[in-house]
Design a protein around this nucleic acid. Structure first.
Lengths: 335, 335
DNA sequence: CTGAAAGCGCTTACAG
DNA sequence: CTGAAAGCGCTTACAG
């Protein structure tokens, strides 16, 4: 049974029609008579013919693939976004290619922006080069964005998110509020820090340098922040911290608990993302929920629209939500 | 500047050679004289020529893509595996296509096993049909496997993992030990349950029905198990539980803590996977570590070897490791 | 509604 | 070391 794969000409011969007709019977059945269609179908069934996508794509000058450029595939934050993307792309007949901007070389990343490689790009990494991306395949940005690149963006309102977090802590009576940032140079880091500063200013509070802790979104960096914070005088250090990622908040909480302190009694913690597990840790984490699946879905839909030439609005801001759990409480005995 | 993309014939014309020579200069430079190579390179630079992969692939009868079939893309467990796969595939010149077997229809999944779609398949979902997969593109299985499908498998020794977990709990003095399973019908569920039963039997203990809790790997199912367990008499219910996933263990711990009990004082908990966060929750989770990045890497390497026709050993069993943290302790006052 | 023919952009025996 | 030519397997104006 190890025959050559049947091709369209085999089907044509058996059905007694031309290859053009077979092609039409497959791609636009309504342009073919009922009888011919049946004959072609019979020939397809009897030969076990299956379309060669590579050939079709070459001829149609498309690839059938969309590439998602992910900053770090190992980061579970992106799994739900990819899931959202996949749920739109699959039914639309596109393949989802995934590339990790961390393990792929810079040059190979550019290869992905080739029309012979992919029909479109979903950029999830704001550190990529605008110049390298400009003028190539259609693209959209999601979550992060590349400054200077004019492309539709699907993102959340990071300023509003900071306002929610700070407002919540302020309402609980906190006045010494700190912020733990993401990695330097990241667009999210900037906007969340700016938002925090503004939200504090609106309440006549100032974000001093010693209340800004620099992290990099990772658990480990949150752990390190615990160290720094514990080293500061209990009477002047923040009584509440707003973290730019849940992972850092978890690392922080784990470490301060390990050192014998209690959350939220000794320090209130607000995270960012609402990743899956944080509702189930002790204490359950108060955090900013990002609609991750939706971000992925919208990004994919937007890209498909752009590919077929529909006019697309340049920016989509998805709503965030403050989820209050048990890692925050009224400012207490400490301080 | 909106020209047609230059093609190989444009480069050939400018370099004053044939397209065959250009092709060789690109693919096998050493078969071309130094001068010619330089001329071709100059022409490539001046035109901005970039290879069309679709055309090359059609001609070479390959696609340059490898598909990973993931049971649930949204599950962070798979993110590190994908990362491992990507780190091998990229440098080898393959695209990584990702398909979610949950959101993709069964028929579209079969499309992925088409030689015109992908050069190979990495199957991460044991529920797929062996008949549908057999005799198509080269494939390997990782983590899970499809019974009856003869393919190289990269997996861990689930029986040995259960032995490690049960041995640890037994060493701590536990005699009433329960097991929380994965979803019914999953191959991992079966082997971990079997392993648990065997490890208990080796210690003259019996796994009774009321000490088997059925979950589905999810956090929520772990939470539900807490409910069941709390409903059992404290004098006869297990003093220790071995969970088939970390997610379930976390759901369980969160819930019993919420109900005012303490882990490990009231119940010892062993998880499975060692996902990122569990070292940082309270208490840090004792668990079985799976080398997820390595599983992905090895699966990709194995597949590439199979594609080029290297003989591949059918099965690779990767070592697991018991990571003892604070969610387990000597059997105590309770019971 | 259908067919003949050109062509998508490469690669690769074959010959020299 | 290099070129002419065939061909990978489709699709699509064009004509009828």
């Amino acid at each position: 049974m190890k025959h050559e794969r049947p091709k369209i000409s085999d089907v044509a011969r058996i059905a007694g029609v031309s290859t053009a007709t077979v092609s039409r019977a497959i791609s636009s059945p309504d342009r073919v008579s009922v009888e011919t269609r049946a004959a072609v179908q019979a020939a397809i069934d009897s030969t076990g013919y299956r379309l060669n996508h590579a050939a079709r794509n070459l001829r149609r000058r498309r690839t059938g693939g969309i590439v998602a450029l992910v900053p770090n595939l190992a980061n579970p934050f992106f799994s739900q976004i990819l899931s959202g993307i996949a749920s739109v792309l699959g039914p639309a007949g596109y393949n989802l290619l995934v590339a990790d901007t961390e393990t792929a070389g810079a040059d190979s990343l550019l290869d992905y922006a080739e029309p012979s490689r992919a029909d479109g790009l979903i950029v999830l990494d704001g550190r990529l080069s605008a110049d390298a991306l400009r003028g190539r395949v259609p693209l959209v940005e999601a979550c992060e964005w590349v400054p200077g690149l004019a492309a539709p963006r699907i993102r959340i309102d990071n300023l509003a998110a900071a306002e929610l977090a700070i407002g919540h802590l302020h309402d609980l009576g906190h006045r010494r509020i700190g912020h733990v940032t993401g990695p330097r140079g990241n667009v999210l880091t900037e906007s969340r820090l700016t938002g925090t500063r503004a939200a504090l200013a609106a309440r006549h509070l100032v974000l001093t340098d010693d209340a800004i802790y620099s992290g990099d979104f990772s658990i480990e960096s949150g752990q390190a922040v615990a160290d720094t914070w514990l080293g500061q005088p209990a009477t002047s250090r923040p009584t509440a911290l707003f973290f730019a990622s849940d992972a850092m908040a978890c690392g922080f909480i784990g470490e301060v608990q390990h050192r014998g302190l209690s959350v939220p009694r000794d320090v209130s913690v607000v995270g960012f993302d609402d990743i899956e597990l944080v509702a189930h840790i002790s204490p359950p984490l108060t955090t900013i929920r990002q609609p991750r699946t939706d971000i992925g879905r919208r990004a994919a839909e937007r890209l498909l629209a752009k590919i077929v030439g529909d006019p697309v609005d340049e920016d989509t801001i998805l709503p965030v939500e403050l989820v209050v759990r048990a890692s925050t409480c009224r400012v207490g005995r400490t301080g």
